[in-house]
Design a protein around this nucleic acid. Structure first.
Length: 270
DNA sequence: AGATCTACCTGGTTGC
DNA sequence: TGCAACCAGGTAGATC
């Protein structure tokens, strides 16, 4: 997400959105006509991120600030199609810019969405309001406070956006492996020492992923058509049955918190 | 209230 | 070969 926001900003900042074509109304949350009307003539100020939300900070045609939030879920992406208008059947929303380029919101599985807010409305949005802290802005003490004495599996806590924001299935599995904690360990049974290792592991995994320009699954490409590289560094995610990079034993796959989870039964403990 | 389960979607993969 | 069943994953909404 961090990588995506960084890639989009230079391509869009300062540009005016002349018109918006909505090819699949379900991808626009909130009133569709108001979305189109408010964006026509709006200019892009900057592109940021909070948790797994992309935030396009805009200035409406009348000068009022607006924020377009975009959630990509699993298959959403933003890109500029080569050679004019796209005939891609998975294009959901097209933003026609004043430089004759078209920014496409593409989402095969229709899970993602775009939604328009005033800054005040964004702050009042339940989902936004309830987001936990950004992991890279959290110190060890704050992390421990949020993970100590909690019921449920440690992985469910890592994935819970109101506990800590922005961690998905990939980075949860990778962090737990590095910390030596099984994904199905009950959070309140994990020692203080292991929780500290988990804090460090989360920091390391996220920083390494950002340095590698993110993780590209299957044919994912960013706005410039480039793939990330962190998927080449996965130690457990998606490697069920393959050997543990540390001890060589076959990695196990289990369902935890409704999510497929990969771990090493020897290196990871409760 | 907090934890857990399921629906939402579609394309790729697996199994018969 | 053909086709059905299953899988992936973030969140909302329901249920426990």
């Amino acid at each position: 997400m961090h990588t995506i926001a960084c890639g989009l900003e230079p391509e869009t900042a300062g540009r005016v959105i002349q018109a918006v074509d909505i090819l699949w109304p379900g991808s626009v949350h909130g009133p569709v006509t108001a979305f189109q009307d408010a964006l026509a003539g709006a200019s892009v100020v900057s592109v940021g991120r909070r948790a797994k939300l992309l935030l396009f900070h805009l200035e409406g045609a009348g000068g009022a600030p607006l924020v377009m939030a975009a959630h990509l879920k699993m298959t959403g992406r933003f890109f500029f199609p080569e050679g004019g208008p796209t005939a891609d059947s998975h294009a959901r929303v097209v933003f026609r810019l004043d430089n004759c380029r078209e920014l496409v919101f593409h989402d095969m599985r229709k899970f993602g969405y775009v939604r328009l807010f005033t800054p005040g409305q964004l702050q009042e949005w339940d989902f936004y309001k309830n987001l936990g802290p950004e992991p890279l802005e959290l110190d060890a003490a704050g992390f421990l406070d949020r993970f100590r004495n909690r019921r449920g599996s440690i992985k469910a806590l890592l994935l819970n956006q109101s506990v800590i924001a922005g961690i998905g299935n990939i980075y949860a599995d990778e962090s737990l492996f590095r910390a030596g904690i099984r994904p199905d360990a009950q959070a309140n049974q994990v020692s203080e020492a292991r929780l500290k290792r988990l804090y460090t592991a989360v920091q390391d995994v996220l920083q390494e992923a950002i340095a590698a320009c993110g993780s590209s699954i299957r044919d994912y490409r960013d706005a410039r058509g480039d793939a990330g590289a962190f998927q080449n560094s996965f130690r457990v995610y998606g490697r069920k049955g393959l050997s543990c990079p540390v001890c060589g034993r076959a990695l196990h796959g289990v369902k935890v918190a409704g999510r497929s989870s990969c771990f090493c039964p020897l290196c990871q403990r409760t």
